[in-house]
């Protein structure tokens, strides 16, 4: 090549290397291919979501009104008239119960894994935690059934109720929060922790006032993912709460069961009734909005706590 001729053999200066024009063309081509695949992957991934929303809105749009989400189901078969208030209220019950159980437990486990435990036991516990995330929800349903609903387990016998269902959903939420908490704490600069310890803080003092605050964003993501995950669950509720067409009178025993959007969709789709099928489609749109609202709400809380704490 022409450029190569410029290089003198016994010269001390930095040799100039020849510019490979073919390679520059090739690398631009590969870059184009990579971008193309990334865009395609996004479209293929996003398409089903938009399709589901479109289908559900197209079918269920005539029920998407205030009456639908503010009245209880009535008529025959039940739900043919009225709305889905029972399921929305029930979801609030389940989320609150699951969160009360899972958030402290998950954050505690995550902190233990990242700060307090021994290295070797932690490797085992981390594996266990990942395994728990992978356990199918129907298995959690059976576990919840034995532990909380029947007389056979630890003596709770809450029956088919919001408490039994919520705690079972809490089982699903806990390892997710634990994982995200651990990762969030591990990303905190070591200087925060060392700085606090060097001043004579105990590990708990350092955790409480320095680490938790720095890790808050990650912990919130964990809570968010946990709640997103349980909102759509039906299998754990089949054995622990099932479904209530009215409002609960308590959270345990008879009358303690609650409605749930995912269960409502599951049940309505199984009924031989055209109206219920359409209402199930409308309910799925409501469920999507419900998830969206919870997401926004938690993000807002996250933003506000970061700003004002």
């Amino acid at each position: 090549m022409a450029e190569l001729a410029n290089i003198k053999k016994d010269d001390d200066s930095m040799p100039i290397f020849p510019i490979n024009r073919g390679y520059i063309k090739r690398k631009k081509f590969y870059n184009g291919i990579a971008v193309f695949f990334a865009v395609m992957a996004f479209i293929i991934g996003a398409f089903p979501v938009f399709h589901i929303i479109y289908k559900a809105v197209a079918l269920g749009h005539k029920y998407l009104n205030w009456r639908f989400i503010s009245t209880l189901p009535t008529g025959f078969p039940i739900g043919a008239q009225g709305g889905i208030l029972n399921a929305i209220i029930g979801d609030v019950y389940l989320i609150v119960i699951a969160s009360i159980f899972a958030i402290p437990l998950g954050i505690g486990s995550g902190l233990y894994l990242s700060l307090f435990g021994k290295k070797r036991t932690n490797t085992f516990l981390r594996l266990l935690n990942e395994l728990m995330i992978g356990i199918p929800s129907v298995v959690w349903g059976i576990v919840g059934f034995y532990v909380f609903s029947t007389n056979a387990g630890l003596g709770f016998h809450f029956g088919f109720s919001a408490l039994a269902g919520g705690l079972t959903l809490g089982f699903i939420m806990t390892p997710i929060i634990a994982l995200l908490t651990e990762q969030a704490v591990n990303q905190i600069p070591a200087g925060y922790i060392e700085g606090a310890l060097a001043m004579g803080a105990t590990k708990w003092q350092a955790t409480k006032s320095v680490i938790m605050k720095a890790a808050l964003g990650g912990i919130f993501t964990g809570i968010l993912l946990g709640i997103m995950n349980i909102i759509g669950q039906t299998a754990p509720l089949l054995f622990t709460n099932y479904y209530n067409t009215g409002l609960p009178t308590g959270i345990t025993g008879p009358g303690g069961a609650v409605g749930d959007l995912a269960m409502l969709i599951f049940i309505y789709i199984h009924e031989p009734s055209r109206i219920l099928h359409i209402k199930a489609e409308a309910a799925s749109v409501v469920l999507l909005f419900f998830i969206f609202a919870v997401d926004l709400g938690l993000r807002l809380i996250n933003y506000l706590t970061r700003k004002f704490l």
Binding site: G191, Y192, G195, A196, A198, G200, T202, V210, K213, A214
Partner: peptide, 21 residues
């Protein structure tokens, strides 16, 4: 007591590490 020991010994680190406060 390690806590009392560290109260008596101040430490300054290589890179400034103020707390996020």
């Amino acid at each position: 007591d390690v806590v009392e020991l560290r109260r008596n010994i101040g430490m300054v680190f290589q890179s400034p590490n103020p707390f996020p406060k």
